[in-house]
Design a protein around this nucleic acid. Structure first.
Lengths: 231, 231
DNA sequence: TCAATAGTGTCTTTTAGACATTATATG
DNA sequence: CATATAATGTCTAAAAGACACTATTGA
């Protein structure tokens, strides 16, 4: 096998999403390369010969954002392999979608931070390095779609959680308001989505009835699904 | 960067599905490597430095199965990168899901052929090389799931097609029987799924009313989705 | 007390599934 | 004619959405 006919670089890029202040946020970092100054990028690393792809994704989060999230939900998004997606060399990148609850998502590295995804479409949005401007919309749409037919929303909250918190996830990711009563009935009607635990969560400053607490159920897929409004 | 810290092989493996005789079939080939004699494998090739991933997938179909399917539906499934998934070397494989209508799927190479996917779970099933025994169930489940909420079923039929042919796709992929009347109403109710064209298809030998013909509509996602029975 | 939020009940509209009926072909 | 398949209509049960009502807290 000659060098001219085999690819010699595999990387991972991680699109980590979380919900902050009732809005969907994306983790971005400043690239190392001074050529890319002024741009932002997804945390990404070359994959080493002795590590798996998922391991490399976790390492990228730790090394570039100072984020230790061993229990974050991590799933492959797609592999981006256009010949000239990286102008310096042929690099095939395995993109990951990561989801974490807000409390566990606190980047410590300078240059790493969360950006409201709504700001990505607004004028004055930061430009993204490489082809990350294509990866990010794919990641957001994947998250939005999987909330419908999988139990993925629970990856955004810490256990135990209330149904209001879970509803807040759906509202932030989809960008819509949902009826609390109907949301409750749909969640409870999806077998194995959430399981009740003892105790209640105290109400906020304005008062209100204490909310029951739940933890993740065994279901991966939701039957019936939680369909987005406005078909 | 030293060779010890960078991966030096990217491959593609293609799981091509089609419907033959009202059943879902998978394309399999005999591996080149004599060490793997007696096993079957998905068609796969190393990715060359000067070709994209999709190009490599098409090339694998052509070179290993004699299958020219430039208009087949091709989408990434997942990238398999376990450190020792290939015992000879570290190879990261981008797995593809391909879907073709029966008429266009005629492998010409010896050793290449279609296998009823039901035979994969039966006793006496052929053993698959590498980790292809893990890729194949992922591919089948992806196809089954995407029939629910995307217009992917039309990738299995040639235009123009009848609703009975489209229903046959759902029945073969899901392995269930569907009510023709209700199926029709759901298909026609999903905006942009299929569009009528002029003319009719002649009935079979036993007679019957001629069926109207349709072509693919512009919709990628189905609203509302075609949910699988037996929730 | 009122305001706020959680949780339940109920009504209406929509949708899914079962299945009868009509239309148009073959033999 | 009988038989087969396409296409439409109808009925019922389930589900979705709107929203009223009750429960339990903070101020």
């Amino acid at each position: 096998m000659s060098a001219a006919t085999s690819i010699c670089a595999v990387a991972v890029d991680v699109a980590l999403l979380t919900v902050r202040d009732q809005r969907l946020h994306l983790l971005l970092v400043e690239p190392d390369d001074p050529v890319l100054a002024g741009l932002l990028a997804l945390p990404g690393r070359r994959v080493r010969d002795d590590e798996g792809l998922d391991d490399a994704a976790h390492r990228a989060l730790g090394e570039l954002a100072g984020l230790q999230a061993p229990d974050a939900h991590l799933e492959q998004l797609r592999t981006y392999g256009e010949v000239s997606r990286d102008p310096r060399a042929r690099v095939v990148s395995v993109a990951y979608l990561a989801l974490t609850p807000t409390a566990r998502a606190a980047p410590t590295h300078p240059g790493a931070g969360f950006l409201d995804v709504a700001a990505l479409d607004a004028p004055g949005a930061p430009r993204l390095a490489y082809d990350h401007g294509r990866i990010v919309p794919d990641a957001i749409e994947r998250a939005r779609a999987k909330l419908e037919y999988t139990a993925l929303a629970t990856a955004f909250v810490t256990e135990p959680f209330t149904l209001a918190e879970l509803r807040g996830v759906y509202e932030a990711v989809w960008g819509v308001a949902l009826d609390p009563a109907n949301f409750r009935r749909k969640v409870m009607g999806a077998a194995g989505f959430v399981l009740p635990v003892s105790g209640t969560a105290p109400p906020g400053r304005g008062g209100g009835r204490p909310a029951r607490r739940y933890r993740r159920g065994p279901a991966q897929r939701l039957h019936p699904p939680m369909l987005r409004p406005e078909r």
